[in-house]
Amino acid sequence: MRMKSVFDRVFRYCVNELRAHTIGVVAVLFGISIFLVLYLFLKPYFFPNFMETTFKTDEERGRYMIEQITR
């Protein structure tokens, strides 16, 4: 019962603060939207992790990099 009261107070506090600080909400939404765009859309579709998926060890990646930087 007491726990419920604490959660209830925290929940109400958050709701009240979010209602009172519209600019803060907009600012937080900026940040969240950037994360969503980056990790759910851009990263998987435009920037596949080539090094991670092509090679198993750092040693193999190192050899590949030597080829790349001494072309």
């Binding site: 907009v26 994360f35 980056l38």
Partner: peptide, 17 residues
């Protein structure tokens, strides 16, 4: 200050990305 801070973080994440 707060508006600039939030957007500085958002654009900074993309730079590191």
């Amino acid at each position: 200050f707060g508006v600039n801070f939030a957007l500085g973080v958002a654009t900074g994440i993309i730079l590191e990305f």
